[in-house]
Design a protein around this nucleic acid. Sequence first.
DNA 1: TTTAAAACATGATATATGTCAGTTTTTGTT
DNA 2: AACAAAAACTGACATATATCATGTTTTAAA
Lengths: 229, 229
Amino acid sequence: MESRCENCIVRQFNALRAMNKEELKQVSDSKTYKTIKKGEALFEEGEKLDGIYCVRNGVSKLSKLSANGKDQIVKLATKGEVIGQRSVIAEEHTNLRATAVNDMEVCFIPKETITNTMHKNPNFTLEVLRHMAHDLKEADDVIVNMSQKTVKQRVAEAFLYLKNNFGETEDAFLSLTLSREDIANVVGTATESCIRIISEFKKKGYLKTSGKKIGIIDEKGLQNLVNGF
Amino acid sequence: MESRCENCIVRQFNALRAMNKEELKQVSDSKTYKTIKKGEALFEEGEKLDGIYCVRNGVSKLSKLSANGKDQIVKLATKGEVIGQRSVIAEEHTNLRATAVNDMEVCFIPKETITNTMHKNPNFTLEVLRHMAHDLKEADDVIVNMSQKTVKQRVAEAFLYLKNNFGETEDAFLSLTLSREDIANVVGTATESCIRIISEFKKKGYLKTSGKKIGIIDEKGLQNLVNGF
DNA sequence: TTTAAAACATGATATATGTCAGTTTTTGTT
DNA sequence: AACAAAAACTGACATATATCATGTTTTAAA
């Protein structure tokens, strides 16, 4: 279960790989290990964070709830990704809440450890910056998609995204199973609309389902749809 | 016209304020001054940038053109803001194009100058990081608004945004005059829809217009609309 | 000042998507 | 295995918004 950050594989995927041995030791000594059950929150919108979360296992959704009950998912964070760094860096309250989509294991690293390293090690800061630049690009792309693509295209794109980022099982179902509601909240549409489109995709031979599990049959077909045939 | 960065007021608004005298001198010596006419592009989508642009005057829109001709505006950058840093930091081609909304004066700073400083001065890197964290938050907010608010609410919000970020003239018109098409492209809607809503807001006494100039009469009213009455 | 082009404006209509209401299936728990 | 609760699904309908078509005003250039 618990282990030293120096030996943690997960670290390879995030900015912590730019840390030197001494800095990693400091992280290792100050971190705490946590498990979060499916459905539980890592933090709520508006909270002040005392540190960041490094995901060792499981998936978290970052979302914002509106007055009318809609919960827009802005990002899905998985193994190796870091959650909460935006808030810690800007020294602001969180603008999103983080919820476990399935059971999670995370390491909590106190913000002092992070900020100390950022003031001393420019390579680390630069690495964090690169990751944030990537996140910003993705966010820009989402904005553009929301205004230029139809719901159907965005749903199709969401499945391709899930396949590319989370992979599929041996029996060709998506490894990450989201509820229809969560898919709708990623896409930014109503749950019923999302369900209807999934049914249509099934009829057209793009997808297969088994309970709430979904598998991609015709990736090319979905891709064509995204690109407007 | 031309001047030393050390004395440039604009610098106070961006990450360059975290540079020391020596670093600023380097920027000053390597920068080039450019003017861009209204409608001209600073760079096109997909270009590789050799440096960043620091806006001294005027406003630039960062947008992405879709196949069907829609041009979604993701950000408006004005005096003091830096354009192109995301692309330079991530060492990627630009994902957006930058166009002058009105006549602009900018300083072009070669990327070597920036990356040199980033490797040496953690405070500068951290300051860049803070700005990017802020941009990311704004982008997240836009995503959420796009999915949770109606076009009418988003148009109302756009006018409040324009007032807060660009101010108004003595006769209470917005200082930044955008075409109806540009407003529509900020909001992510059709130009006709945008025009219709402006007409409606005029009738309801929220706005006044004079040619393409627009002024806010009832800020509270617009704000209520944004919040769903 | 005249004129052409661009931008603004409005009506009519089509359509994608949301909402409401109800049924069936799946899931997880005792 | 039985059950309740949650999630998935489907139909009917409402509506916000896009699209097309056309006229008017504004802008900028000759």
